[in-house]
Amino acid sequence: MRRGSLKWPVFVGCVLPVLWLIGRGITGDLGANPIEEITHETGIWTFRFLLGTLAITPLCALTAWSRLMSVRRMVGLFAFFYACLHFSTYLVLDWFFDFEAIIDDVVNRRYITAGFIGFAMLIPLALTSTHAMLRRLGSRRWQQLHRLVYVSAIAGAAHFLWQEKADLQRPGIYIGCLALLLGIRVWQRARSRWRTRVSG
């Protein structure tokens, strides 16, 4: 890694939330229901990292700060890391491998179904995140596959919204951010199509 690389500071920033959570666990600051707290924290950080990943491309375009692009994969992998923590919390701490109950949940509760889809969509992306896999797939197919991140983020948004009991403000803010990030892409696509049509 060359001097002045963004990778180290961003890496440190990405592990801070989990270190903070562990610290709170050690000092007994997770409250009366630690499993619920861990579930909520790992979940919200997964969504934040997904938003962060999706923000990098438009930010590079808008600010011409292209060095940001060098950390996009890492931030995306951290989204997957937090999703894994979130899913393992559900699997181990919440249900302790009670697969009967888990399957019932995944099939019958739409917010769990959405969360499960969102998590599952991230797995192929993490597996094909290496340069070697990019070469093997070819850049076009790789890019097509990695559009799954949009499906995952939308499923994550539904998961977030549908688990809420009464107050939609908090998921609303996050989903607004996601809508903005997806909207920028739709707008850019529409604009570039229009330009090619005009020039062609």
């Binding site: 229901n33 701490l93 919440d94 302790f96 019932d104 949940d105 509760r109």
Partner: peptide, 15 residues
């Protein structure tokens, strides 16, 4: 949105 078959007693690990 969730099952009512089990519960977590606050302070215990297993449902």
């Amino acid at each position: 949105r969730w099952s009512q078959r089990s519960e977590r007693r606050i302070g215990r690990f297993f449902r």
